[in-house]
Amino acid sequence: MARRPEGPPPPPVVGRVRLRFAKRGRLRFLSHRDVARAFERGLRRAEVPMAYSAGFSPHPRISWVGAAPTGAASEAEYVELALATVVDPAWLRAALDAALPPGLDVLDAVLVSGSGGLADRIDASRWLIRLPTVTEPDLSAAVAELLGRDEVQVERATKDGRRRFDARAAVVLAVCRAENDTCAILELVARHTTPAVRPDDVLTALYVVAGLRPSAPPEPTRLYQGRLLDDGTLADPLAPDRNDAGRLVGRSSA
């Protein structure tokens, strides 16, 4: 005699929208859970006609793809929304962007038309890491040391205790430049591996191989995500859903 929710089952999914959004400024300190909560509230405020799961506590059907770690900014986070009514993606982008706090900014929205899941189109990230208090020559020397190795074991505290893994193999590309005399910049292309090699793991690796230790916290920003191409650039994961499919991003400065 278990109770069941009254009324008809929730309306079916009639369309899906994929979004690229940014996590900027002080909002880089949001965790993935914080971002997800902000999105659910923003979607309700924007009155986006979401499809919901069935049951006593229906949830909007949102599929997250990866997530930049707490403390990392991003220009390229992706999420897929299931809709109960088809809407104009341009309207959705603007309405949701207005309903989200400044710093969670919706940059792009496409109706799903291409085949294949979003996660299958993403296997690498391009990062820009500001390193205040580090000079460019010190950074370049450490990076050269890292790239010269086949494997560099690092340790990180995870939910399940400390874990050791290789942080070198995931690094496809690492380019150094100077923002000024007291701040170096590391641009990095890293494959998505398990466990994920994050910017702080690469910095740990630089400490392991060359003793590089910034005295101020690094400021990482994810610039792009996508499928890694032979030339080291990343293919835009939303491109197959667009009319002008195939446009590439991430060509600059590499």
């Binding site: 002080r26 909002l27 965790s31 509230r41 403390g71 706090p101 205040p132 101020a216 916290p217």
Partner: peptide, 18 residues
Amino acid sequence: EPLLPRVRRPVQYVGGEG
């Protein structure tokens, strides 16, 4: 800001609430 990566749940100190 440079202190925040060093503390637990830094998001509680950044403000910006709706």
